[in-house]
Design a protein around this nucleic acid. Sequence first.
DNA 1: CTGTTAGCGCCTTCAG
DNA 2: CTGAAGGCGCTAACAG
Lengths: 338, 338
Amino acid sequence: MTSQNNVTIHDIAKELQINSSTVSRALNNSSRVTQKTKNRILEKANDMGYQRNLLASNLRKNKTNTIGVIVPRISRYFFSSAIAGIEEAAYEMGYRVIICQSLEQLEREKNLIETLVANRVDGIILSISMETVNSEHLKKAKAKDTAVVFFDRHCDDKAYSNVLNDDFQGGFDATEHLISQGRRNIVHFAGPQTLKIYQNRQAGYRKSLEKNGIAFRPELVFNSKLMEQDGIDCGKKLLKLPFEIDGIFSANDVAAITAMQYLKKQNIKFPKNISIVGFSNEPSSAVIEPALTTMDQSGREMGQKAASLLLHEIKNKSLEIKPETVILKPSLIKRNSS
Amino acid sequence: MTSQNNVTIHDIAKELQINSSTVSRALNNSSRVTQKTKNRILEKANDMGYQRNLLASNLRKNKTNTIGVIVPRISRYFFSSAIAGIEEAAYEMGYRVIICQSLEQLEREKNLIETLVANRVDGIILSISMETVNSEHLKKAKAKDTAVVFFDRHCDDKAYSNVLNDDFQGGFDATEHLISQGRRNIVHFAGPQTLKIYQNRQAGYRKSLEKNGIAFRPELVFNSKLMEQDGIDCGKKLLKLPFEIDGIFSANDVAAITAMQYLKKQNIKFPKNISIVGFSNEPSSAVIEPALTTMDQSGREMGQKAASLLLHEIKNKSLEIKPETVILKPSLIKRNSS
DNA sequence: CTGTTAGCGCCTTCAG
DNA sequence: CTGAAGGCGCTAACAG
């Protein structure tokens, strides 16, 4: 019962009185084997319950046909939809995907990169943790010639390719949208300012205020580390403001959604005329009150793009492809109608 | 620049004029190497930019210290929290986790199992796709003596361990709760009846109706395949019912959340006195209207439990441990207060 | 404590 | 079209 079936190509070869190289070729569907012997081999392999050992195969070929993906958390809709896009593109090209989460910790991110490299993945797609400030830890990947592409949250390093949103423009457009509706007292739920994307969103917000002659008030910027608690704090801060606000631009969905949940729990109703624009496409944002308009960033699209960039680099490793940065435009979308 | 650094233990050994086995031992921190030579080796390895090849190591050891996890979708809160629990438990025992999603497709699930086995993972934790009706495809894992544990969605096969919810009891309690509030016209959002868990939840619902002398009406059972469209359909069906209902027991969060979103978009307000009990711990369920009470199933706890069961089986592979089934009790939780 | 030897399972030259 | 031989990088006996 504990058969521990460990049939190898040699076992098959022995049974068939042929050489293991022929078996190997047959199993790889090489054109240099007669269809007839191929059939014999395949059948025997099946009978004996042969299962290829990819460790050995990959070791020999020095290639795994696998790419690693590291995101902060798979539970965020943006990231899981990006992963869907990556898998789609990778699958088409015959690549497997290993999904990993850094849980926003640099230490974990480092470990994951090391493990992926040690397992000889052909490439890595990465959206950095909130603790990550440079690409130092990717040297190990570079050293092994492992291709790397960033998406969304990136390191400012010309050596790597990126797939990004135009976050500045998004922040700008979001704020413009609010102002065009007559809002002038606009709170900004910011994200961790260690990350370029949140810096840029905030910069866009400020640019729009400036353009419209509205003074920037630091006390209207609510910082967040993307934890639920920060969202609750945002909700509380809203209640403590010494004056009425009429708009919110949220650069992160955790803050927006959790703050609204919190206020709802407290049975606090916003004045009907407040507007929120969020930077998120989390579906649950569609049920929050008051109505939310979002800067839509297509995770799937970014993922697909990142994967094809990466695979392109992998295929042309010898050609020393130069890194490329793709910037996508997010667009305003109304998510619910109440 | 394209250094393609491929330093092996032999290179280090050559530089140091020693044997590669000593290098191997040093790098594995074996007690049978002088601290002094260890230091020399470690330093040299570092200098030369050595990076272990786990493919080779794992091939030789016939062990990867890795477990594979297959879930239908990582984006569902229940599954991503289960994964968190698995990673936690696995990490403690020094195991790595590979996350995979079947996207509810049997074909993908089969492929994933094959790839995981081919990559010689030490064990697999699995929550089956909605298309999966038996454990046939796990024979390949069994053949290689790969440990397998199911959680939540399982196959009825005595050969494998399971970590399950008491779904029947949950469905029963949920319905009892509604009835105790005076509801008698209770709709059931069911899940795919191919899966035991949804059968059991429905059976619990029926049992409670029966116990309270309420006739079971098939037209009050809304089936769902867990797609957004099904949620919308549930919403539409609610509107078309020829009589008033006063309670809903939802066995799946997709239907509950999407239906409520849909009704909200249509600007349809439920009568204040309707009650919903959902079988979900998706946080976004906390913002849905009307107030939702849930049968809480702790993903994290199930994940931890599944991982420790699996690791136990892996460690005692030689002892032919007999499969175990753990059943957890979900409990009613009020998620918001409006 | 260190060296020697052998081989994990596969693929890929190179011959024939 | 098939066989023989060697080695991917590492570890695990077995010696000494």
